[in-house]
Design a protein around this nucleic acid. Structure first.
Length: 804
RNA sequence: GCCGAUGUGGUGGAAUAGGCAGACACAAGGGACUUAAAAUCCCUCGGUAGCAAUAUCGUGCCGGUUCAAGUCCGGCCAUCGGCACCA
C-alpha cells in the first residue's frame, strides 16, 4: 500500500458521495432530538474565502458531525450575506450588474467551501439578495413600522465622505468609517430609524438567560450602557425650567454651574435674553463643524461659552449659578444638559479650572479638591450639604432623591448609551425600503401583497454627491400612487443597511422555501433557538445585537416562539499572518485556502486549523506546522498496515482508549479542539508502540477522528469493511470505571521536593501509600533521625512528608 | 480614563475543586536507511553546574497564604481588545 494517501482523489470521492446522497440534509422529522449549529454566513467577496472563515466553520462542523453520530437531527446551514458596498463598488468600476458579480462570487465561495468538506445542508442555502428572501426582510420592516418602531426623522447623522452614505453609530470606529477608514462627518439628513432603544432593557435582561461567552455579554452591556440616576428640574432667572440627568444627585449642593450642549433647544429661545448671543452662536457653529474624529482627538481640552444674562437656580439652596454651553455635553445623551460639580467630577473640574469657577467640596474623604476631583463614591462622607451632612454617598443619593420627588422637581431615571439604529443607506445594492411618501398622507407602507418590492435595474450605480441614492434617478420607479389615498406619491429611494438581511437569516434556514411566511410555525418551534452560534467578536455590537433586537420584536408580535435567538454564543480568535500581523493584501501575508487544500488536502487543513492553538485566541499561521498535521494523518493511514483480525480493545490500550473517548467527547463540547487532537495523537503514538491495532480499536479511532478529518476516515472505514458509511456510525461510549489504570505512578516528596517515584495500586489507602513511600531508599535516608511533622497522601498523585 | 482579556521553552501551545510545570506538535541538533535528496524511523532538546547519578534556579515583577502556588490573595509592570467628555 502507498505510504501517503491520495488526498485529492479521496476527498473528491467522498464529497461527491455526500452530495449525491444528501448525507447532511436536515430531516423534517420533528420527533427526533435536534441540534441547530450556526456559523456566520459569509459576505461573498471577490477575494474568495479567507483562512479565517474555516476556523469557525470547521469548529461547528466538528460539533455538528459529532451530534449526528450521537443521534441528533442536525441543522447546519450555509448561505450568503450578499448585499453590500464592495460588490457595488466593483460593479461601478467594471460596469457589471452587482447581481452578476454576486453570483460569480458565490459560485467561487461555494466551490471553496465544498472543497473543505463541511457538512452543510446545501438544500437550505439562502441568499439575502434573492427577492424571495428579501421579501421577508421587507415584511419585517413593515411590521416594525406598524408598531411604531420604524420612523423617519431629520437629524444629525454620521456621514462617510468616501462611501457617500450614512452610517449607524455601531459602524463608526474611532471617528472613522468601519468599512473604509475614511473620515466621518455629521450631516443633517432625514433618515429611517429603528427604535432599538425601546428594547434596551430587554436586550440587557436577555443576556442573563443565555449562554454567551462573558466577553460578548460584557461588550453588549457596555454598549447598551445603562446607568441609574436622577432627573432634576432646574429653574432659571427667566422662569424657563430645564432638566438635567445625574447619577450623583448626592452632590447637588456642590453644583456651582450648569452646562448645556451647544445644540440645546432653549438657547435659541433665549436669543434676545442672552447678551453675548453672537459669541454663543459662533461657538455653536464651531462645534457643529467638528468631525467625530476631531471631537475625540481634542477631547482633553475643554472649551465653552458662558450664557450672559441667564442663570440657573440650584433648587437645594436657591443659589444663582451661571450656565455655559460646551461640547463636552452631548445633546444625544440624557437631557443634553448637566449640573456641574467640579469637586467630584474630573470633566467638570477641568472646565472649572479653565474658567475659574468655584469648587465646593461636598464629599469629604479625598485629597484637596482644589488640586484634584474626588470621584470615589464608595468611601466619603457628605459635608457642606445641609440635611445630607454626615451621610454616605449611597445614603445621600436615596435621601436627596426622596426630597426631590417630594418637591416634584426630581424623578428616578434610567438612561442608556444605546442610540436608535440609523437604518437607511444612500446606495443601490441593498433591500429597497417598502415605503411611499404622499404629500397628503405622509409616509405610507406599501401593501404586503406587493412584496417583494424588487430592486429596479439602473444605468448607473454611482452614489450621488448630493447624498441621494442612485435609485432617486429612476423616476419611473420613484413615481407611484399612494396606497392609502391613491394620489401621486414617491417611493423611498434609500435602501436598507447590510445588517438587515443578516438580522433574521437563521430563521429562514428553518424553512427556506416557504412563500407564505418567513418560516412555518412548526419549523420554528422545532428548530429554534439556534443551539450553538459561533462567530467573530467584531459583530458583537453590530450583527449580534441587531439580530437579537429583531428577534425580540418578532417574539413580541408572535412570529417566533423564543425570546432569544441563540442559546449559546462562542467566538473564535483571528488567524494572523505568519509574521503575527493581521492578514491583508497590503502586508502580503495572505494565505489562500485553495493552496493549502491542493498541497496538503482538506483534512490536513481542518486538523491544522483546529490544532493551531486555543480556539478563542488569535494565532499566527505557520506553514511549517501544517506538516505536523499532515504527518499525523499519514500515520493514521499507515495504521491500516498493522490492522489485525482481532476484535475488542487490547488489554494494554483499553483504559487509554476509554480516556481518549472521554477527552475527545468533552473537549469537542468545550471547543478545545487542540487538546482533543493532542489526545488522538497520544493514542496513535501508543498504538504505534504496540505495533498492531485491533479492528475495534481502529473503528473507535476512526469515529473519534471523523469530525476533524471526515474524508480520510470515511475512506479507511470503507477499506476496513465496517458496516455502512462512517457518518451513519454511532459515537463510542466510554466507561468511567475503565478510564483509570489499576496501578498508578505517584511521586514521594519530602518538604515538597520530589525524592522518589512509586508504582502503587490506584485504590490503596493513605496509610499503606505513606508506609510504602517511607520504605523507599531515597526516602528513608532522608527521614532517618528527623521528626515527621506531617504526612499527606493525595490519591493517585503524591505523598508529601514534612520533616524537621 | 473606564471595562474585559492575556503574560509559561527557540516557536504554537498543554497543565487551575492548589498536587510531578512544559502534554501534543513545530523548529533545531545527532543517528539509521539512501549513490544522494525527499520521505520515514530512532535519540536529544528550559537555564546553570557536573562525565554522570544529581543538585539548583525557573510560568511578567514584588510580597503574602499553604506541607505544596503557573493556579489563591494583595500591590505593580507590559501587551492586546472594546468603549470613550455617556454626566
Amino acid at each position: 500500500m502507498e505510504r501517503n494517501y491520495d488526498y485529492t482523489k479521496i476527498e473528491k470521492k467522498w464529497q461527491d458521495i455526500w452530495d449525491e446522497k444528501q448525507t447532511f440534509a436536515a430531516k423534517n422529522d420533528y420527533t427526533l432530538p435536534k441540534f441547530y449549529g450556526l456559523v456566520e454566513f459569509p459576505y461573498p467577496s471577490g477575494q474568495g474565502l479567507h483562512v479565517g472563515h474555516p476556523r469557525s466553520y470547521t469548529a461547528i462542523d466538528i460539533v455538528s458531525r459529532k451530534k449526528r453520530l450521537e443521534g441528533f437531527n442536525v441543522l447546519y446551514p450555509m448561505g450568503w450575506d450578499a448585499f453590500g458596498l464592495p460588490t457595488e463598488n466593483f460593479a461601478i468600476k467594471n460596469h457589471i450588474h452587482p447581481s452578476i458579480v454576486t453570483e460569480n462570487n458565490i459560485k467561487n465561495f461555494k466551490r471553496q467551501l465544498k472543497s473543505l468538506g463541511f457538512s452543510f445542508d446545501w438544500s437550505r442555502e439562502v441568499n439575502t439578495t434573492d427577492p424571495s428572501y428579501y421579501k421577508w426582510t421587507q415584511w419585517i420592516f413593515l411590521q416594525l413600522f406598524k408598531k411604531g418602531l420604524a420612523y423617519k426623522s431629520k437629524m444629525s447623522v454620521n456621514w462617510c465622505t468616501s462611501c457617500k452614505c450614512v452610517l449607524a453609530n455601531e459602524e463608526v470606529v474611532n471617528g472613522v468609517c468601519e468599512r473604509c477608514g475614511s473620515e466621518v462627518i455629521h450631516k443633517e439628513k432625514s433618515q429611517w430609524m429603528l427604535k432599538i432603544t425601546d428594547y434596551a432593557e430587554k436586550l440587557l435582561e436577555g443576556l442573563d438567560t443565555v449562554d454567551f461567552i462573558d466577553r460578548v455579554k460584557t461588550q453588549q452591556r457596555n454598549w447598551i450602557g445603562r446607568s441609574y440616576g436622577t432627573q432634576v428640574t432646574f429653574n432659571t432667572n427667566l422662569g424657563d425650567k430645564f432638566d438635567i440627568f445625574t447619577t450623583r444627585a448626592d452632590t447637588l449642593f456642590g453644583a456651582t454651574y450648569m452646562v448645556m450642549s451647544p445644540e440645546h433647544p432653549l438657547i435659541s429661545k433665549w436669543a434676545d435674553k442672552i447678551t453675548n448671543y453672537e459669541q454663543v452662536k459662533e461657538y455653536q457653529t464651531l462645534a457643529a463643524k467638528k468631525s467625530d474624529f476631531e471631537r475625540t482627538e481634542l477631547a482633553k481640552d475643554k472649551t465653552g461659552v458662558k450664557l450672559e444674562g441667564v442663570t440657573a437656580i440650584n433648587p437645594v439652596n436657591n443659589t444663582e449659578i451661571p450656565i455655559f454651553i460646551s461640547d463636552y455635553v452631548l445633546i444625544s445623551y440624557g437631557t443634553g444638559a448637566i449640573m456641574a460639580v467640579p469637586a467630584h467630577d474630573t470633566r467638570d473640574w477641568d472646565f472649572a479650572k479653565k474658567f475659574n469657577l468655584p469648587i465646593i467640596e461636598v464629599v469629604a474623604g479625598g485629597e484637596d479638591v482644589q488640586k484634584e476631583a474626588f470621584t470615589d463614591c464608595q468611601s466619603g462622607v457628605l459635608v457642606n450639604s445641609d440635611f445630607l451632612n454626615g451621610l454616605s454617598v449611597e445614603q445621600a443619593k436615596i435621601k436627596i432623591q426622596e426630597w426631590l420627588c417630594e418637591k416634584g422637581i426630581g424623578t428616578v431615571k434610567t438612561n442608556y448609551k444605546l442610540r436608535d439604529w440609523v437604518f437607511s443607506r444612500q446606495r443601490y445594492w441593498g433591500e429597497p425600503i417598502p415605503m411611499v411618501y404622499c404629500e397628503k398622507c405622509g409616509w405610507v407602507p406599501i401593501d404586503e401583497s406587493e412584496l417583494p418590492l424588487v430592486l429596479p435595474n439602473v444605468d448607473s450605480y454611482e452614489p450621488t454627491d448630493n447624498g441621494e441614492s442612485p435609485l432617486a434617478k429612476m423616476t419611473d420607479w420613484v413615481n407611484t400612487t399612494c396606497p392609502h389615498c391613491k394620489g401621486p406619491a414617491k417611493r423611498e429611494t434609500d435602501t436598507m443597511p447590510q445588517w438587515a438581511g443578516s438580522s433574521w437569516y437563521f430563521l429562514r434556514y428553518c424553512d427556506p422555501h416557504n412563500d407564505k411566511e418567513l418560516a412555518s410555525k412548526e419549523a420554528l418551534e422545532y428548530w429554534a433557538p439556534v443551539d450553538w452560534y459561533n462567530g467573530g467578536m467584531e459583530h458583537t455590537t453590530l450583527h449580534l445585537l441587531y439580530s437579537r433586537f429583531w428577534h425580540k420584536f418578532l417574539y413580541d408580535i408572535g412570529v417566533v416562539p423564543n425570546a432569544e435567538p441563540y442559546s449559546k454564543r462562542t467566538s473564535h480568535g483571528m488567524i494572523l499572518g505568519e509574521n503575527g500581523e493581521k492578514m491583508s493584501k497590503s502586508r502580503g501575508n495572505v494565505v489562500n485556502p485553495d493552496e493549502i487544500v491542493k498541497n496538503y488536502g482538506a483534512d490536513t487543513m481542518r486538523v491544522y486549523e483546529m490544532f493551531i492553538g486555543d480556539f478563542e485566541k488569535a494565532a499566527p499561521w505557520s506553514q511549517a506546522s501544517i506538516k505536523g498535521s499532515k504527518r499525523f494523518l499519514d500515520k493514521v493511514w499507515a495504521l491500516f498496515d498493522i490492522l489485525s483480525d482481532e476484535k475488542g480493545y487490547s488489554k494494554e490500550l483499553e483504559s487509554e482508549i476509554h480516556r481518549t473517548i472521554k477527552k475527545v467527547t468533552e473537549d469537542i463540547e468545550g471547543l478545545k479542539m487542540n487538546t482533543a487532537i493532542a489526545a488522538l495523537m497520544t493514542l496513535l503514538n501508543s498504538i504505534q508502540g504496540k505495533k498492531s491495532i485491533t479492528r475495534d480499536e481502529y473503528k473507535t479511532f476512526l469515529i473519534l477522528l471523523n469530525p476533524f478529518a471526515p474524508h480520510i476516515t470515511e475512506e479507511l472505514w470503507e477499506m476496513c469493511g465496517f458496516d455502512g458509511m462512517l457518518n451513519e456510525a454511532k459515537w463510542p461510549d466510554f466507561d468511567e470505571a475503565k478510564c483509570v489504570d489499576s496501578t498508578v505512578e505517584i511521586v514521594v516528596q519530602i518538604n515538597g521536593k520530589i525524592k522518589a517515584r512509586l508504582n502503587i495500586a490506584a485504590d490503596i489507602s493513605a496509610e499503606e501509600a505513606i508506609a510504602l513511600a517511607k520504605q523507599q531508599e531515597a526516602v528513608s535516608k532522608e527521614i532517618s533521625g528527623k521528626n515527621i511533622i506531617k504526612e499527606l497522601y493525595v490519591p493517585k498523585k503524591l505523598v508529601n512528608l514534612v520533616v524537621k
